[in-house]
Nucleic acid binder design. Sequence first.
DNA 1: AAATTTTGCACAAACGATTGCGCCATTCAA
DNA 2: TTGAATGGCGCAATCGTTTGTGCAAAATTT
Lengths: 344, 344
Amino acid sequence: MVKKANNIKELAEKLKLSPTTVSRVLNGKSKTFRISSVTSQKVFDGAREYNYSPNRIARGLKLEKTETLGLIIPDIANPYFGSIAKTIEVEAHKRGYSIILGDSLEEVSTEAELLKLLTGRKADGIIIAPAGKKSRHIVEAEQQGIPLVVIDRFLPDTNLPYITTNNYAGALMAMEHLIEMGHRNIACIQGINGISANTDRVQGYCDALRKKGIAINDHYILGNDFGELNGYNQTRKILKMHHPPTAIFALSNLISLGILRALKEEGLKVPDDMSLVSFDEQPYSPFLACPMTTVEQPRNEIGKEAFELLLQIINDKNQENIISKKLMPKLIIRDSVKKFSISN
Amino acid sequence: MVKKANNIKELAEKLKLSPTTVSRVLNGKSKTFRISSVTSQKVFDGAREYNYSPNRIARGLKLEKTETLGLIIPDIANPYFGSIAKTIEVEAHKRGYSIILGDSLEEVSTEAELLKLLTGRKADGIIIAPAGKKSRHIVEAEQQGIPLVVIDRFLPDTNLPYITTNNYAGALMAMEHLIEMGHRNIACIQGINGISANTDRVQGYCDALRKKGIAINDHYILGNDFGELNGYNQTRKILKMHHPPTAIFALSNLISLGILRALKEEGLKVPDDMSLVSFDEQPYSPFLACPMTTVEQPRNEIGKEAFELLLQIINDKNQENIISKKLMPKLIIRDSVKKFSISN
DNA sequence: AAATTTTGCACAAACGATTGCGCCATTCAA
DNA sequence: TTGAATGGCGCAATCGTTTGTGCAAAATTT
């Protein structure tokens, strides 16, 4: 059996020192408190020998900071959020922070619970990708004084700091590509209405059409969920239209999977029977039946920037230079858009 | 500004009660300590009115349990682990536990750090998908007394409790399908050698061949990583072989993506030029250029069972009925295997 | 040699909860 | 009327850290 010191008092006794001294040495305050280097060394050696590591709970209680960050995500199984979570965890770990992960299941009520839990657990800060439009509970949490950064979407009517993709620009790129390829009748299957990420993308969709003098057909904008099923259902609707579009702009990776499922059921091919551009590049995008043209969001940057911003809010007294950002996405052109030489 | 009680003492003062009483009421011990129902009600109302929620850090310190579970995963961006993490988080949340997430980046050293961190943070238990073959640090953590469950892989030479897929059975199914379809020369691109999940799958590969009296060609078993690049590199090797196989059995979702990339570069088609079966069903599997035949692991069950098992270890004194499990996977047959009528 | 400064460390009080024990008031039994 | 039993709640110690303050001993100055 290895020798073991379970707390600072035990270690102090074995070393014939006081807990005070041990604590100070281990926290790198030897100089400040004039602990002799021989004593310091004794403490370091002892800590290793007796395999002592401080109880972070007790430490957190006393210091009133836990070096813990909350991360609330609507769906951690979605690789888009998964990779954001990854970079946040990795960055946090580098800086000594741990992540408490909460999956809100896209439900505002669960999200509110998680928020309460995290404040009860005295997280030093929270990064949240909000589940819905309602944001009162988030604003309240922030007003209780907990540093908070919003990702993926921002919340209008609040001035919570955020890091998101420039969704408007992404939609613009995608649509300009479709239009250049000769498409005029383009449907847009959207996600949750009223969420900034969605609104901005739809805005980009509309503005791109407007710029080119193409009339906006309201029936072409449909759907209300970022999930696969919505993509499937809306596509079925589209295929039954009088005057169906020649292309679909999908506002999420899951939506485009649903589109593919519906098209496949009807025996339709991309891009010959239907052109497609989707938000969210994925590792499999190049290997689909028809390699897909996508808008790639800068996931890693979102994670990094969000973490840095949160850290800044935690550490800085002057909240002057807290600056939200919309990061540029990238259009990856593949084969899922058919070239139309003649206008349809 | 809302009225606010930041700790139990403040709340007690406002209610003209002692912290003792408040604590007992809020912990549902009114009966046991004969707190009158009128007092109890006063406490409940007060807690709501002053928006009091107990400091879980202080609570954790005193109670010596934090209702926090550690989850260590090699790559949270991989949807396979992502969905396991999701079910674990959701189940845990239902039972009042929070999850501290750690991404080991497939590195044993990072994994060891995370393990230390979690014990320092006094997690009540840990669920870990080990990154490598080395497991000393994991065993040590468990011997320090922290409840621990291993997922995805088990660690031979230890008797740590585990929940995994029955990888042997999964490989057997996949191979039997390939053989039934007439394939005799089947390559196997494997993941990290020496890891149980990999070893078992390779064992299934070999046994399936043996059963059918097919000689095992050592050159057909190659690779040493679960990542995309390994799939790509090994496929390039395979394509240069004297006597190339007619089918590849990929031991992970990422490996099969790498295979697809290599095949695509050479202008080869699945299944006409190469048949393919892969471990790990994915949402996109049906929509690939050739809809892929896959082995689906029971991710949700793995998550649930692992959590239940951990809870059992945490709560039960008698560790008699701690029982590890290998859960059955499912073969999903699509179009990526070509039918060979004539033997090749 | 006395006074002062510096060195080197320890005492004890927090942090916010939980809990063994105790104490007073009331009710009941004798 | 007294003693015992019960009802209803509070005191103070404790969990493992950190830290403001304090106090000897050694070193230095006068």
